[in-house]
Design a protein around this nucleic acid. Structure first.
Lengths: 197, 197, 197, 197
DNA sequence: AATGAATGAGAGTTCATTCAT
DNA sequence: GATGAATGAACTCTCATTCAT
């Protein structure tokens, strides 16, 4: 009896690789959604489900819940860095992108508060690195003599202050409050928008 | 399945009625500690354990998680109100007491951020009332022409901003950051201390 | 408070996917035993323990208490339906199978009484559907002119009556009482046995 | 310094006694209400609360939850006994009173089913005695040659059967089903009502 | 690599029962 | 005698994490 094998060899050898990358991206996207809907405390299983993958895949890509949060925030931070590297930019423009993320994602705010004891679970030291990258991006455009250039800490204290002011049910309200906060600090902010924006 | 309890041989002391008030106080004190260490999300069982009582006692005194939080925060708010009612006081002094509580208790900060979507569980409407009482206490001493008297919201936005700046491992560090924040806002603060202080 | 689990040193075998079906079956079997011993109020934890699985497994397979009950009773009802569909059957034979389950399982009796206010927790609407399936199975073999064919409700009232009579410590005693009850109703019952029996 | 004692000796020495009896009655009445609203599983604390006494009082009068249930049912049984002792009575009249209680109280039905394994918690052996008193009251009026006089058990099996048929949301519906059940048994029942009725 | 089931440790909540006052 | 607080076990349900397939 002749047995015709279903030809499997045609399947690209690196399908596994590609699928892996696709899954990772799907997980990050899902986490972003879930975090914004339920906060950083959302169950990991919800993220895997939303991404359409098994929970094991999540653990293959991320060692723990902190890593998931970091991956999500990484993208936010990257946008701020790119805004800082753009041609023809200045502090107000970078602050505009920063502010966008503040108003967009409770998780991003948590990151900036992460040293605070009892912060949302799972944002431990990763947060520190990301926070420093944000600081570098901003400081690159901080003119001498700027209000926030006086003391070493002023810049990030100001950012933390604005993040404290940002609350309210809709993004628009949160943006209004953020603008007000910057105004009270006497700091100019540009248009509030995501980076390639 | 039978719900009849097996009568235990040894039952830890029942200290009787007198213990009730003591237990309630112990619970509030324990909650204050736990909240300040872990935030409002801390498990109620940790509070009962710290207070040295069974979980049932906690539920006897407080119907739910929110009631515990309220009991703790109530005392903080009361101190601010009393500072506002004291003779010979002024805005800087009241802000000093407010700032003390900001640097003392993560829970107090959560209360002031409670409108934020996805805030810690169990800070529902109580938070709003308490927050308004703080606002009234401050506004009573807000002079016309003060920096924070320009727009309706400025006062509480500023408070939220300072609360956003307050973080760090020790109370002293948190106080330093709070002072810096008030300075960036151009607002004078008095000595930072609890009320009858 | 931190929710991160301490990774346990020793974790009891994970038998993998194959165990799923086996576990589900074990749960249903355990539930059947527990229910027949303690009634539908038995704690779910007892069922999981008897099945030799963790409680989480129970919740994976059954969303709630009602689903467990339904899964158990479903099989009983199915047997009655199959008895009704068998070739060469008649009302006494179907009643024999019905009576078997009455004498076998306190839960099955509860199901037939489920409308009663304050019935055991977890017998909500499922019970009604199952009860109707039993009724259909019986009615299919109810000859015109039968004692229980006079009024619409007579059939199921009679079943409820017999179920009320069924009590006693051993199955044999319960069967004797059931037979007596059918005799008092002037209704003939066949051999009392489970279906493929 | 002359000390006027508040004259206490005027307080009737047996005030305690009277209060005790009053409390016991209040507890039984409260239990009756609570049982009929929530079933025999209702928390004892609810009964004490409804009676307006502390939980300790409940335990002073009743050693356990079974004793409470018994005290409630005692009154029902007494009514049936009095109906049996009344002049000019007969089986249908006594059955009318019995049926009244069946339709009135889920607890009473539980009592009659109490031997059944897994019956509602707390109706253990007391139930047996009460059940026997009901049986004696009925049997006193059971004429030779009556349908239920054939075998020793027939009488109480019939009662159990009717109790099995009694369900439905309103008392009226339950009464209708009870009447139907007696009719299917070919047993005559009088007016359904409480005893001094 | 992916899947998705299993595990079991808590967290929250409810109550029976005891006992100091 | 009455009161009502305390105790703590038991139950339900949720998830982080592991691992056979």
């Amino acid at each position: 009896m002749t047995q015709h094998r279903v030809p499997e060899e045609r399947r690209p050898a690196n399908e596994g690789r590609k699928a892996a990358a696709r899954n990772r991206a799907a997980l990050v996207a899902a986490a972003r959604e879930i975090y914004s809907e339920y906060g950083l405390d959302a169950p990991l299983s919800a993220i895997a489900r939303r991404a359409g993958v098994g929970q094991g895949v999540l653990y293959r890509h991320f060692p723990d819940r902190a890593a998931v949060a970091t991956a999500v925030l990484e993208e936010n931070v990257r946008q701020i860095e790119r805004a800082a590297e753009a041609e023809d930019t200045d502090l107000p423009r970078v602050l505009g992108v920063l502010t966008w993320h503040l108003t967009q994602s409770a998780a991003f705010i948590s990151m900036l508060h992460a040293d605070r004891a009892g912060s949302a679970r799972g944002v431990p030291s990763y947060a520190h690195d990301l926070s420093e990258r944000v600081e570098r991006a901003l400081r690159a455009h901080l003119p001498d003599g700027h209000r926030l250039a006086a003391a070493e800490d002023d810049l990030m204290i100001a950012v933390a202050m604005v993040s404290g002011a940002v609350n309210g049910p809709t993004r628009e309200q949160r943006e209004r409050r953020a603008r007000e906060a910057w105004r009270l600090l006497g700091v100019e902010v540009g248009r509030v928008h995501p980076f390639p924006g």
